[in-house]
Design a binder for these strands. Structure first.
Lengths: 247, 247
DNA sequence: CGAAATGTTGACTATATTCAAGGCAAGTGG
DNA sequence: CCACTTGCCTTGAATATAGTCAACATTTCG
């Protein structure tokens, strides 16, 4: 399991245009706070719900999700995590419940010392700001999901989720999603993200499929009619997202 | 409208045990970034949905909420804002939709220069960290609300909301909520926060009231049977929340 | 190849929404 | 002071949306 583990200075993710460049001193600081690269198979628990004081991670490859459950097992997926996402902020500082993190696909994560947030703020204000940026950005994603779950119909929710995941995945790919994007979610994951039952999620997916709006096939998602999906979901795309920090 | 406007050094909120003390230099920095104190009546818009590059605020007195709407007017309340909450982070850095902020009661807010976040990070790492803390904490609140809206039944949602708002309001009061806490929400606000229709929200509130779980009366909320509410909502309280920063 | 996970479908039920109406309290203007 | 409006709360009846239950098919994987 000796995974490909480049130094931060040579991180291929960092070379991607989606991410803002950081100067050499900042990257060296990040490297110094990094403890190791950890690998997980699909469906493994990265952070258990309720785990006290878990480490911080940056997702390096693969997909994952954050979730919460009620005592009787009902599960809500809060948001999905793609390469470059910074994980574990919410855990550190909260009187409220904790969430879990689980992989959707095989995944590797850069694990950081638990005091990394403080060190970043203390020793590199630009990176402290980056942590704030990433945290606020993630809250924006949860906000959007809450709007879906609270106020969109089942079909609208599914459409909104497909569009958002497609966009997030597409910017990470060289071909911008021309041949579809990876889609490692089961229908159960979709249901748990949208606050729907498995059966109803299935029917809704089939309906949108039969209407020619999308296609999910061999673990890849294709938006056959993105305009119709956007109209249905009331989600309109702004093209390329602004570059974001990478810790 | 010459509101009571003490310097940050003498801020009565800052003296409250809910908030962590900051040293004199930090408080002076906060004061220097503060532009003015602004007052709003109940039901006014503080930040319009879609307003580009709005200012930052700390809520000084009164209640407010963040929300998003769909084009046809369906509204989702994302979370409620109480004194001490820091407002406006999500707006600054996002390719995704923007939210609005509206007051529930008469309210006063400390308005900050738009570059305050950067100045705080740059000139006082401890306050940069505080901004991150507050942002992550707020995301935790949205996470909880998403769990409710996605996976709790109507009665469970109402119970969870009443408990959470009661707790947040109670710690700010001298008597810890012994005589109830202010409750400036209409049933429409509750409905919009929980993703329910107004009518169903009303029926659910009446049911919990008739079962002797709570009472809302003259704009105040009393938890008549907090234990039963906690059991229903699957929310269990940890007593006093940890102290939090105040910008 | 067999087991387990995931996807699929129909029939039935429950939960929540919509529509429609009316009540009450607070504020406004004649 | 009294009509009148406005906003919020309240209720019943009809309807729609989504959930549950129960099978069975298909795919994946050891």
């Amino acid at each position: 399991m000796a995974a490909y583990d480049p130094p931060c200075q040579a991180c291929p993710l960092r070379a991607h245009p989606l991410f803002t460049p950081h100067d050499a001193a900042e990257v060296a600081l990040i490297q110094s706070l990094k403890r190791r690269l950890v690998s997980f198979a699909a469906g493994e628990t990265v952070i258990a719900e309720g785990q006290p004081d878990p480490p911080l991670y940056t997702l390096f490859s693969g997909w994952a999700f954050r979730y919460k459950t009620l005592r009787d097992g009902r599960r809500q997926i809060l948001n999905f995590l793609l390469p470059g996402d910074f994980i574990g902020m919410q855990q550190k500082m909260s009187d409220v419940h904790l969430h879990g993190v689980e992989t959707l696909s095989a995944a590797t994560l850069c694990e950081f010392r638990r005091d990394a947030i403080w060190e970043l703020h203390q020793r590199a204000p630009g990176l402290g700001f980056a942590v704030t940026w990433l945290t606020a950005h993630e809250e924006g994603l949860v906000d959007d999901n809450l709007l879906s779950v609270g106020r969109r119909s089942a079909a609208e929710r599914v459409a909104a989720l497909l569009i958002l995941l497609f966009k997030r995945a597409a910017v990470l790919l060289a071909d911008r999603g021309a041949a579809g994007v990876p889609f490692p979610l089961t229908q159960q994951h979709v249901a748990d993200a949208l606050g729907l039952s498995l059966v109803h999620t299935h029917r809704t997916l089939r309906r949108l499929d039969r209407l020619g709006l999308h296609r999910i096939d061999a673990g890849r998602l294709h938006l056959v009619n993105p305009r119709a999906l956007e109209r249905l979901a009331d989600v309109y795309g702004d093209g390329m997202p602004p570059p974001r920090p990478l810790i």
